[in-house]
Design a protein around this nucleic acid. Structure first.
Length: 639
RNA sequence: GCGCUCGUAGCUCAGCUGGAUAGAGCGUUUGGCUACGAACCAAAAGGCCGGAGGUUCGAAUCCUUCCGGGCGCACCA
């Protein structure tokens, strides 16, 4: 494949520069702006110009004259004011592309935490962005040979669960049994969605109810009594719904670490001792934080003065959220000296087993651990970057700079709603809000789009299209195809924006299946499959001599476009940016659509050329399927 | 106030470690289906890359500064 050739060129040029000039200038290979410039371009002469104090063009000429020949490279030429353009040996590359994908060498053990939705209400579109980003990055890393384990953290003892318990018990006067009965009704997660909004709004006017919140939270943290039981019941059921919702998007997990176990196994106590020993935190004896254990601001920021230190343990002795997070992060790297027990929870349709943490060995599956990772990605929205900085600083202060450096906050911006979509949802907006580019969603206000509602809506829209185009297909297969298209549309929509971009969600835009969308890419793969299915002849291996076929510039460019998947994957991983791969998928589909239009395959009369076109169609098909697979998007049987 | 982040075509966004004439989708205008299925293709119009300085052979990209959005700076999670 192409990457081998690329690294061969880079190696040859670097070595030459080292020998000839004694410089270890990093060599970069670019794609020329215009196709007829060649396959690759080297801007190396510009870099050397500075050190050699010589005109770039003269250096480029010197390089071209003196560079030894490189296998697979046909010619070098100086262009512009110092570029070196490379033309490669086309038939050799074509044949290399046809070679099977070599499995990557085993890489390090990686943990990715994503989803991590508060288990007190249904998932919404913002959560979908998190899960889709995380899941896609998992697929990308696995394709590169990493052993990845996927964690979905469950904060089942936090205030948000407490709020819903308050709602059922104190606001609606429900007993434990009554709540248990409710959990068995359909869409219990939607019921909680509404109740959570109701409770949050009632707090504003009802001080007595607000006092119940602290009481409930303490009961849940302690882990016994009716309130705690109710909390467990609610959280477990809502998590079940979240797992089902995510499974619709083909998103799975290996383990669900729960806050309740972090409390009961006293992870924090172990971390606290280590933090004190290493003097990473100290007991404040004056000022507003008097009596608290704090981390000095200088530990996590160059800009912060000491008065901005972060409280880790409150003056009443109770640890803060960040404190627990430091302990959890230590566990991820195996630095805590203890582990969870793991209880079997469910088996996914593909046979993959899911485990949930447990506080005792009873009922636990022995011999399992998800700790001791080399690298950790936390997929958490960018609003929490300050806290993630503190967690990282904690590791550094404990004397683990390597682990701190391998802690990645895989941050992303929120998903908001366009004013138009708010209006469609029946949400009243002020004139001020209507003028804004987007409106932030809010669980407390019940303002948002539920994930399952959106998926249902997408499926319905896709089904209408599928039915109008495929009258003869049975309804079950049409339903299945509509689901694949809907998921493709949703996943691509969430992936095409880079992480720091706020997505202003708009129904009209999300429900569109034309242009730069998942279905466009799926459609390209389906069309390729259709040609291959209709062709009655087997595809012969490419001959060494392809004659004049590859001299057709457009055909050659088309072939080249189909060969860049590995490069695109590598760049996307290096940049921690799934959007790069998503964009590549779209470009690949565009290149294929263009080829499809321009080169009718089955009616081609020259048998050699027909075979080549068939071969290229199969190559495109394989690359499209593979790239879509990395994005978690299936290719339907028809569209 | 401090920190982070963004400002690119009418709209929504790409632009990887600075590199050749700044790209795509939508929208607009025009052309292409007796079909390897048009969820498509081709073409056109549309840009002082927020402003001003600087570094460089070269800046949308790096630095400084200003302007304008967003987010974060709890003994909440």
């Amino acid at each position: 494949m192409l990457p081998q050739l690329e690294s061969r060129i880079v190696a040859a040029v670097s070595q030459h520069i080292l020998i000839r000039y004694g410089l270890s200038t990093p060599v970069v290979l670019e794609q020329p702006r215009q196709a007829d410039f060649g396959e690759f371009a080297l801007p190396t002469a510009f870099q050397l110009a500075r050190e050699r104090r010589k005109a770039p063009r003269a250096i480029a000429q010197e390089l071209v004259d003196e560079l030894p020949s490189i296998e697979g490279v046909r010619s070098l030429e100086v262009a512009g004011n110092g570029y070196i353009n490379l033309r490669i040996d086309r038939p050799a590359v074509a044949i290399a592309i046809a070679a099977p994908v070599v499995p990557p060498p085993p890489a390090g053990k990686v943990l990715i935490e994503h989803t991590s939705i508060n288990p007190n209400k249904a998932a919404h579109i913002g959560h979908l962005r998190n899960s889709i980003l995380g899941d896609t990055f998992v697929r990308m890393l696995r394709a590169k040979g990493h052993q990845v384990n996927i964690q979905n953290y469950i904060d089942n003892t936090g205030v948000q669960v407490a709020d819903v318990v308050v709602g059922f018990h104190f606001l609606d006067g429900k007993s434990l049994d009554e709540v248990r009965a409710l959990t068995l009704l359909p869409r219990f997660d939607y019921l909680c969605w509404d109740l959570y909004a109701k409770v949050s709004q009632t707090y504003a006017t009802d001080e007595a109810l607000k006092a119940r919140r602290a009481e409930t939270l303490h009961a849940i943290e302690a882990g016994h009594g009716v309130l705690a039981e109710m909390g467990t019941l609610i959280a477990d059921k809502v998590v079940d719904y979240h797992l089902d919702t995510m499974l619709r998007l083909d998103i799975q997990y290996d383990a669900l670490p729960r806050e309740s176990e972090i409390l009961h196994l006293q992870f924090w106590a172990a971390a606290f001792e280590l933090l004190k020993q290493r003097k990473a935190i100290y007991l404040e004896t004056e000022g507003k934080n008097n009596g608290c254990w704090v981390m000095p601001g200088s530990a996590f920021s160059d800009h912060r003065e000491d008065e901005d230190s972060k409280v880790i343990v409150r003056s009443n002795g109770i640890v803060t959220y960040v404190g627990k997070d430091i302990a959890y992060q230590m566990w991820k790297f195996g630095l805590l000296g203890q582990d969870f027990y793991y209880r079997y929870l469910r088996t996914y349709p593909d046979g993959q087993k899911l485990y949930v943490t447990s506080a005792s060995p009873e009922g636990a599956t022995p011999g399992i651990s998800f700790s001791h990772n080399d690298r950790v990605y936390n997929v958490i929205d960018s609003r929490q970057s300050y806290l993630q900085d503190v967690v990282q600083a904690g590791l550094r202060a404990l004397g683990h700079p390597k682990e701190a450096a391998n802690s990645v906050h895989f941050s992303y911006e929120m998903v908001a709603l366009t004013p138009r979509t708010c209006t469609e949802l029946g949400i009243a907006l002020s004139d001020e809000d209507r003028a804004r580019p987007y409106i932030e969603v809010s669980g407390r206000k019940g303002l948002g789009v539920k994930a399952d509602d959106l998926i249902d809506k997408l499926i319905a829209a896709a089904l209408r299209e599928v039915e109008s185009r495929n009258e003869n297909e049975p309804s079950e297969t049409r339903q299945k195809v509509a689901e694949q298209i809907a998921i493709g549309a949703l996943r691509y929509f969430m992936l095409k924006f880079t992480r720091p971009t706020v997505i202003a969600f708009d129904f009209q835009e999300a429900l569109s299946f034309t242009g730069e969308t998942g279905p466009y890419i799926q459609y390209a793969a389906v069309r390729a499959a259709k040609i291959l299915a209709k062709s009655t002849e087997p595809i012969a291996p490419l001959p060494a001599n392809l004659g004049s076929i590859l001299e057709d510039e457009e055909l050659w460019q088309s072939l080249l476009a189909a060969a860049r998947t590995d490069s695109a994957l590598g760049l996307a991983i290096a940049a921690d940016e799934p959007a790069h791969l998503a964009r590549y998928a779209f470009q690949l589909a565009q290149a294929y659509s263009n080829f499809y239009q321009k080169y009718p395959v089955l009616i081609e009369t020259d048998p050699d050329k027909r075979n080549f076109l068939l071969w290229l169609t199969a190559t495109y098909r394989a690359q499209l399927v593979r790239t879509l697979g990395l994005l978690g998007i299936a290719v339907p049987a028809f569209m």
